[in-house]
Every structure is written in C-alpha cells, then in structure tokens.
C-alpha cells in the first residue's frame, strides 16, 4: 500500500467517528444550541454500543443502543439548557463529565469482554476502482452509512420544511413562535438527534474501529467534532472534510513511522490539533458573523 493511499484510507477510518459527531453537532448548532457534551455522548455511545454488542452478539443492536445512550445524554443537556435556561457551555461540560463518570463506572466490567465486531465489507465493483476503491469502499458498514448521512443531512436542513424549522429555531426563533411553532420542541429534537449521531460515532469507535471498550477511549474526539463544526460553519459536507482532515493527521504518524522514516512524531502528533486551531483562528471572525443568532447569544458575539 502506498503512503498516500494508506493515509487517505486511515483518514476515512479514523475520521468517521468524528464525522458522525460533527454532523450531529451541526444539527444542534443550526437550531441554536451548542453541545460541548458531545464528547460525553460519544463515550456513552461507545460503551453502550460495546456492551450491548457483547451481550447480544449483534453489532447493529449495539449501534442502536449507542445512539440511544448518546441521545439520552444530549437530552439531559437539552433539558437544562431549554427548560432551565442554564448556560449552554457550562451545561455541556457538566454533561461531558457526567458521561465520563457514568461510562467509567459502568464500563469497568466490559474492558475484558469480547465482541463480534463489525468487519470491513468491500463494496462490490466500487471497491475495485484503483485508489478510490481502497480509500472509500473497503470499510465497515457504519462508514458507508456516514457517506449517506452527510448529503441527507444537508438536504433535510437546507431543502425541506423540517430544515426550515430547525434553521428558524436557531436564527429567528421569535418568527417561528409567531407562526405557532414550538421552538423549544424543535430545539429538543435537534439536540437529541445530535446526541444520537454522536452516540453512533462513539459506537463506531468501539465496535468497528478499535473493537474494544476502554475508559475515556474517545480521547477528546468529541471536542474535535465541535471544533470541526465551528470551522465548517455547520455545513455537513465541510464537516466531512474537517473530520477526514483530522483522521488523516492521525493516520500520518503511524504510516510514516512504520516505514522507518525520520520524523518528529511529537510535532506530527500535535498536527491535528494545530490544524484545528489554525483554521479556527483564520475563519473565526468570518464564521462568527455567519452563526445563527441563537448561537451568537451563547458566545455573546458582536456581529458589527
């Protein structure tokens, strides 16, 4: 396998969990709610996915459980933010630590368990295409689902009545309310959907990628997803690019090392995070101005 193919394949493999979480967070933020608890939803999804797969022998049931767990944690966030008017950023962090604590507690028993994990499935015909086939079409089924998720999410958000409601809830909630729509319900659904997707992302990590559960195994990928959403300005396709960029940066280090190349791995290891920071700095002002009104309130941004 040549280096570019290996890194790009690794980008998809390592970026998929972040992709699910960032698409989910895009939906929540479009509705005007930031969920820093995304990391917690990913952890909950990773554990529930692994635990239920271990107990049922079926990874699909596991992923479903992962989605429910991620969604449940996001519901906690939504409740405090939407019903109690709590600060979104603070609540998100609390939800993260709740997820971290709960999964550490209940996850201990599953560290040594084994599962029948997802296995890679080569898409007929497509996987035979040189380069592209190897990079895109020799993965686990959750990766293929994410290929579908991205355009579907874009379409729903931008081209359907449901999407209009979601965008309205984030942008001009008074208008939505004036027309008799329940803004809070829309926001609840958006945040919980975001959590469901983050949960699937976590389950992808534990049941399709690492094939193991371990305490705090997401290692900050949920925060990366939130950062990806900021620089992708909540656009699913851009979030896909951002997620794969992070995945590629992660895959580059082992790929170079396994070839015995002399590189500074510490610099390489910080590359994904540096990339996120640089993009945020470059895009920050512009993106802030584009953010839904609801979000601008959260960050107390001035658009002038």
């Amino acid at each position: 396998m040549t280096l570019p193919i290996e890194v790009l394949t690794g980008a998809v493999r390592g970026g998929t969990s972040i992709l699910y979480a960032s698409v989910g967070e895009s939906i929540a933020e479009t509705a005007g709610v930031v969920n820093l608890g995304t990391e917690g939803s990913m952890l909950a999804g990773a554990l529930a996915g692994y635990a239920i797969t271990a107990n049922t022998g079926n990874p699909w049931v596991g992923v479903l459980a992962g989605a429910v767990a991620g969604g449940a944690l996001a519901f906690v966030h939504a409740f405090f933010v939407l019903h109690r008017g709590a600060n979104q950023l603070a609540t998100g962090l609390v939800v993260l630590f709740l997820g971290l604590g709960l999964t550490s507690l209940f996850g201990a028993a599953f560290v040594s368990r084994q599962i029948h994990s997802f296995t890679a499935w080569d898409v007929p015909v497509l996987s035979k295409i040189p380069w592209v086939g190897e990079i895109l079409f020799q993965h686990d089924p959750l990766t293929y689902l994410s290929f579908v998720l991205v355009p579907v999410t874009w379409f729903v958000l931008q081209r359907t009545g449901i999407g209009l409601l979601v965008r309205g809830a984030g942008e001009r909630s008074e208008v939505l309310a004036t027309y008799g729509h329940d803004v809070r319900l829309v926001q609840y659904l958006a945040v919980v959907t975001g959590g469901l997707l983050a949960g699937i992302g976590g389950a992808q990590l534990s049941t399709a990628y690492a094939n193991s559960w371990f305490e705090n195994m997401t290692q900050g990928r949920g925060f990366v997803a939130v950062a990806v959403v900021i620089f992708a300005a909540r656009r699913p396709l851009a979030a896909m690019g951002g997620s794969y960029l992070f995945g590629a940066a992660l895959a580059l280090s082992p790929a170079l090392q396994a070839r015995g190349w002399a590189i500074n791995q510490f610099a390489l290891d910080s590359l994904p995070y540096l990339a996120v920071i640089v993009v945020l700095v470059l895009l920050g002002k512009k993106r802030a101005a584009e953010a839904p009104e609801g979000l601008q309130k959260v960050f107390e941004l001035s658009t002038s």
Binding site: G14, S206, Y209, P254, A258
Partner: peptide, 8 residues
Amino acid sequence: DPAKQAEA
C-alpha cells in the same frame, strides 16, 4: 488511545 492503537 485504542483508536490510535488500531491505526498503528
């Protein structure tokens, strides 16, 4: 970091 291990 299990995912990094898998990649390695």
